[in-house]
Design a protein around this nucleic acid. Sequence first.
DNA 1: CGAGAGTTAGTAAAGTTTACTAACTCTCAC
DNA 2: GTGAGAGTTAGTAAACTTTACTAACTCTCG
Lengths: 362, 362
Amino acid sequence: MLPAHGRRHNLSLVLQMLYSVGAMSRADLARRLGMSKVTVSDLVSELMDSGHAVELGPSEVVRPGKPGTLVDVNRTGLQAIGVDLAAHEVLRAAVLDLDGNILVRAERPIGDDSGQAVVDTVLDLVHEVIGAATAPLLGIGVGTPGIVGPGGVVDTAPNLGWNDVPLRDIVADATGLPVFVVNDADAAVHADYTLGDGGDDLVLVKIGRGVGGGLIVGGQRVRGAHFASGEIGHVTVGTDGGATCRCGKVGCLETWISAPNLEKALAAAPADDPEGPLREAGERLGIALAPVVAALDLSEVVLSGPEHLLGGVLRDAVEETLRARLLARTTTDLTVRLAHRSDDIVLRGAAVLVLWDQLGVA
Amino acid sequence: MLPAHGRRHNLSLVLQMLYSVGAMSRADLARRLGMSKVTVSDLVSELMDSGHAVELGPSEVVRPGKPGTLVDVNRTGLQAIGVDLAAHEVLRAAVLDLDGNILVRAERPIGDDSGQAVVDTVLDLVHEVIGAATAPLLGIGVGTPGIVGPGGVVDTAPNLGWNDVPLRDIVADATGLPVFVVNDADAAVHADYTLGDGGDDLVLVKIGRGVGGGLIVGGQRVRGAHFASGEIGHVTVGTDGGATCRCGKVGCLETWISAPNLEKALAAAPADDPEGPLREAGERLGIALAPVVAALDLSEVVLSGPEHLLGGVLRDAVEETLRARLLARTTTDLTVRLAHRSDDIVLRGAAVLVLWDQLGVA
DNA sequence: CGAGAGTTAGTAAAGTTTACTAACTCTCAC
DNA sequence: GTGAGAGTTAGTAAACTTTACTAACTCTCG
């Protein structure tokens, strides 16, 4: 731990404060951060030199004393790229501003491509959005299906035909920008945690072709012993059988609640209980999540995926099941809700990753 | 983050290195820690001044050059107090050395006491073991049943008749020593994590009168949104009913696997399958843990409690159930084992807490 | 309405803490 | 003796602090 590391941390603290609270004067920063005015002035000056912060002009507050000069994160002068490789049949990318707003979008169909062909499409897509950026780029965040090992290597992503693809290095070499690669559900939970206003302990379940999860515990993203945290799609749920899963086991969570399986079950539902499959799926998810919520003492369960499937009966069933299977004390301030704007959550989460690493912003 | 914080961190790094690797020269420390010899000399000198480190004399290694002077954590010159308030019908305390060895023990029966009477007994017990210490004390660690809120306040511990007892301040005021209070299962997992050689992602399930858990995720103890992590005793397990629990619900984990319920079931077991209840209990625990292991991608499940109950069939059933309910990839290097020396695990974990906080030792 | 008092923002200078490099002495094997 | 490694001393750079200042504003009162 060199003094320079402390300095870097303090620079991040300033950016975090500005990012989460908004523009303020140097003196406000000093008071809020418990640093001296001199140190803050020096930190801010370094951040302005590097382009990460800007002055916005004098404060309008009317009170005795010299008005402060407002300082803020360079919200309009910096952008990031987000890439979502987990959408259905399509690769997506976008230019985002620092608040997570999507400024420019681009897409490429996957078709029947796999392996290197998909990698080439990703690079093509990334180059397109880089060209569309209107401000200096902090970096590129990528949310991908499959397990992402250390160094941004995608271990296995069957849908893309990938095995041990060093995606981070590939994209970094092709663009010269810093690149961050994570699992799509991890990106999603990062988006919800950073851009939302929830607690420091939450799980996000992402329901699409499969079922994946991302966890934030104590404000930190859980990575797992084999970088495979959140892989809950193939946990057996309940003790009363179920359908046979594509993985070979019986009663996996995915057989009840993946989007394709849900659509199928809804189509086959009896007329007198058309929403039965949604209730059943919610119950099963609740059964699987109950031990997780209890063990980690989570305060939020977030569902991400098609709103018409998750929005009503299913969400209610998850909440009811959790309340039924846990102590009342555990569930009193537990919230079960849908993610905001699930469609773009991976894009936003991927961009947020860039902010985290480049700015230390939370 | 002041430079002084970095200094403190670096002092801890030196102690950690010595603690985990063993005695070595200043030059060795400098190489291993990537610091300059000068800095290490300075850090070591500060640690010797404070009594946390000692010189052991010249190294015996035969080679050209001046022999180094071995430096080590002051293993024999420092001790810590561990207190276990979660044992059956008795309060226990001990003096431990820095390696977690128990040097002196003491006990007090609880009897029918509760509330303030128990607090008084704890203080009496603590004073006895403080008197038995043969070296300066780093502090007091306490493992208690119930939920421990911020500031070492015991929210609720029914067995002791406690509600919102500010235990840390009470013991600190009475002894003048630094005091650390945590839940007993959290203490246990801390002991296993620090004194064992496992991975950075594990769960410890402590089975006694009730069932509690402690989790280490990414090398950090999980606290939870309401400081109630690990409270898995009253999660409903399975979808096929079960016995009614003292909490009022049906099929809680505790009804299957708490020590009293297990003993009862074993006594009533049919002669042709005397170990049936153990197998059933292990299966139920496996069912409850499967989603937790998958979501967090844990590498170890540790059981702590009466060995004659947990050791054989039960442990095997937990492992088999996890393997059956999870993807093979998740379970290939998952180990399910008993804690070493469960009897004293809370005492050792409580003492380890002190080391963590006072020395920054892992 | 204007002068003085009081308050707040921001900067400059000097001092402290921390860790670095460079250069040295000391000790030992060969 | 000579070379190698351990540890110390001297000097430097970085990062923060305290203290003291200027600049700019509001408030009050004659």
